[in-house]
Design a protein around this nucleic acid. Structure first.
Length: 215
DNA sequence: GACCAGGCACATC
DNA sequence: GATGTGCATGGT
């Protein structure tokens, strides 16, 4: 089983290799939320283009998106892929955000993490990873974000099993690390970076900062 | 041209 | 409850 030391050591190894990654790359919590929706199963580069389009159109704004036609919104976020789908999802989130918090991030900050998580998950188009990304990177809550790379890396190092789902994998981290927002922030970013560079489907882990961690 | 990317919802068995 | 499928662009 993963010990505190093991997870922390892995973190240190990745951190020495990549340095601080400074996630989330966004200028406001709202931009983080939009990015979290748009990056679903999508390369971040493509998300950047979509966000750039929104900015240039003056649409990176709660009420601007709320008042935007579905087709027009979809066109703006087209580079992020699944653009019709994501236009709807974005609107669902905006609807929830305005209805419950008047589109004000500050008002969201008064709500408990567990309540917020449940609320977010009830929005059609927000699943566990998107909810946790919003909680951690937009609202600074200690929630560990799990993604495909997280499982792939843990699997490769025999620290989880194939059957483990989102919750099980999240618990491995949350049960064995301090609930520290900057740590969770950096840890997930480092996992994504390590995954991208060293843990693609075709194994080539030779230069991986994790080395033979638990293998 | 295949494969992949910082998922999620829904249908079907 | 597990498994399969649609959604879609841009890089390698």
């Amino acid at each position: 089983m993963a010990s505190r030391k093991t997870l922390k050591e892995a973190y240190d190894a990745m951190l020495s290799h990549f340095g601080h990654l400074g996630w989330w790359p966004a200028q406001s919590p709202f931009e983080v939320m939009v990015g979290a929706m748009l990056t679903q199963n999508t390369n971040w580069k493509n998300v950047e283009r979509a966000i750039e389009n929104l900015k240039n159109a003056g649409m990176l704004d709660v009420y601007a998106i709320h008042g935007c036609e579905h087709a027009a919104l979809a066109e703006l976020i087209r580079p992020a892929g699944y653009f019709r789908l994501k236009a709807g999802r974005l609107k669902n989130f905006i609807e929830y955000f305005i209805l419950n918090y008047g589109g004000d991030v500050e008002r969201m900050k008064e709500i408990s993490t567990s309540t917020l998580r449940e609320e977010l998950l009830s929005v059609k188009g927000i699943g566990p990873e998107t909810a946790d990304s919003i909680l951690l990177y937009a609202l600074n809550r200690p929630m560990f974000v799990v993604d495909a790379y997280t499982k792939r890396i843990l699997l490769r190092h025999s620290l989880c099993c194939e059957e483990d789902g989102y919750v099980e994998i999240q618990q491995i981290f949350m049960d064995n690390l301090e609930w520290d927002v900057p740590l969770f922030n950096e840890y997930h970013a480092l996992i994504v970076e390590t995954g991208k560079n060293f843990c693609r489907k075709i194994p080539h882990c030779d230069a991986c900062p994790l080395g033979n961690w638990n293998r």
